[in-house]
Design a protein around this nucleic acid. Structure first.
Lengths: 342, 342
DNA sequence: CTGAAAGCGCTAACAC
DNA sequence: GTGTTAGCGCTTTCAG
């Protein structure tokens, strides 16, 4: 029984070697260690490689060399009905950065009923990938614990607990939030509220902490409220309760633009004018906020730089065996627009 | 010089065979053709595989069998500043569907300065993947032409020209648009406008065609306007011009929710009440529209079913060499909300 | 600077 | 039902 793909269709190293009148090893060197060849030989072999369209078989190369040139990215379990709108941009940036270095990104996901750690284990055991890029890491993430324990290369988007390797990249959320509070305080705001969602991811805590730190610097006490979930109705309802109080805040910092959309809707329902009656700020700079009237003050994530740093650090671990000793914080960019008034 | 990864750490088929007192082939069969083994032997070998944590080396298996269990997905060149918000949900669905069948998704992208076709060629030549999943295909897509000509397995999200293989899956956009016009016509609307963007992708034409077909069924003539780009400001401006005309439409069907957001902003600026003064409808059911007041009538794409069908068809081609003879149209779901009035 | 030999881990083909 | 043989295409190692 034969496979349906005809045999021998591919150009092998042997074909090139024969055509060039050299050994297979010389062809291999032309690709992997060109400095070893005499300029003339290199030229001849390279031309032939191009002409014949020879590409080393990735599987054969991997089997022999032990390196796959593939990075696994466990996709966060996104609700298709409410996907993370930044996912596309993040992946785009990661794929571009990895591609520059000759690596591909493999999307992986636990089979149904399989836990996260087990899925990683299988990929490592099957030697399918060289390393992992993790995002949405929890403070005490089982995947991080597992990979660190096993000594397998990985990098995390989002800081990990101090007992773990510090090979992570994150946005300096705390500083960005302090800047945001500074901005509002400078405009005279004293009663500033923070609107959180129920997310259990660490960045939510960092945004909250940054808010409180900023408030303390100005001798202010920040009021916090939480929407019970990510549902728009719940967000709007929670915000309306806040805005309907006898002494209402003059500014609301939402932990994310998604929440800020709810503040806009709530303010409209309460008859408040954003930018004058109420200052509003968000976080993430979702493209959709460009339609808001007035435009939303927010913090933009440097996705390209994040992706670049993640890939850099991971490849350093994979290729040189060097694990970064400290995490990398990248500044978010405060984007001031009319919603914050002043 | 040694690689930094210690040798011999992985459990090989040999280890299992020795431990079980059988040949390597028997271990292989336990995994790939269990029916060949005596129940007792199978049991013993399987237990040992589990205990030792043996997983076949993917590269070795691929080299021998010629199959990679990897599907390539060329990521559309998304602007990180304005990414496709459905990308995350689509990928999630594709990864899940592929995962069920034991396949992974490899994100690929042309290197800078390399054309699309060349990138595919390299992946095929290097035998990195078993097939391609294409999205955002153009009517006359160079990638489709190339893959079809080469006879390499692929499937397209979005219909392709009739001279190409018809192994595509698409949303029945025309029918959805006809339904939408029916809905508005039934509510008494006669002057219905269609708001297009400048996208050159075929679905834009299908949405336009569906709109016109729907209008003809009711003996109406549809007015079309185009926003010059995807920029919110341009969309709002174009829509305001339309709504400011002496005889303005009573309903606007936007070719996408993104455009519908602009209609909301324009209507507000013109002092028109959506749902009463002006009916509005969109397409795609972006999650963010849940914040709109009133909620937006739109069409929801069946992403899970699309992804399932794409993977099904592709695997049929890869594994059985069968190419579907006809494209598959999946119905979009009309979601009626208050914005369409009536 | 180039060539020859060896073997990565697995499964297809065939023998017993 | 199980074992033996061979070889996928490449790169590492070592000899010249």
């Amino acid at each position: 029984m034969e496979t349906h793909r005809p045999r021998g269709r591919g150009v092998t190293i042997e074909d090139v070697a024969r055509a060039a009148g050299v050994s297979r090893q010389t062809v291999s060197n032309a690709l992997n260690a060109p400095y070893r060849l005499k300029a003339e030989t290199l030229e001849r072999v390279t031309t032939l490689i191009e002409e014949l369209g020879y590409r080393p078989d990735q599987s054969a190369r991997s089997l022999r060399s032990g390196t796959r040139r593939i990075i696994a990215y466990p996709t966060p379990e996104d609700d298709p009905a409410n996907p993370n709108p930044l996912m596309g941009g993040f992946l785009e940036a990661v794929v571009a950065a990895a591609g520059e270095a000759g690596y591909h990104i493999l999307l992986v996901r636990p089979h149904s009923g399989q836990d996260q750690t087990r899925a990683l284990e299988e990929l490592i055991a099957a030697r399918t990938v060289d390393g992992f890029l993790l995002s949405d890491v929890l403070h005490d993430d089982a995947r991080v614990t597992y990979l660190a324990g096993r000594g397998f290369p990985f990098v995390a988007f989002g800081r990990t607990a101090s007992e773990h390797p510090q090979n992570w990249v994150d946005v300096d959320t705390v500083q960005a939030m302090i800047d945001m509070v500074d901005l509002l305080a400078a405009a005279g705001h004293r009663r500033i509220a923070f609107l959180a969602s129920s997310s259990r991811l660490p960045w939510m805590d960092h945004r909250r902490d940054g808010f409180q730190a900023g408030m303390r610097r100005h001798g202010l006490h920040g009021q916090e409220i939480s929407a019970p979930g990510d549902d728009p109705g719940e967000i709007v309802a929670a915000t309306r309760r806040l805005l309907g109080e006898r002494v209402r805040p003059t500014a609301v910092i939402a932990a994310g633009d998604w929440l800020a959309l709810g503040v806009y809707a709530a303010a409209r329902a309460e008859g408040l004018d954003i930018g004058t009656d109420l200052a509003v700020a968000g976080f993430n700079d979702l493209p959709v906020t460009a339609f808001l009237q007035p435009a939303l003050t927010t913090v933009r994530l440097p996705l390209r730089r994040i992706a670049g740093a993640l890939v850099d650090r991971l490849l350093q671990t994979i290729e040189d065996g060097v694990t970064p000793q400290a995490g990398l914080l990248l500044a978010g960019e405060l984007v001031v627009r009319p919603s914050s008034g002043g």
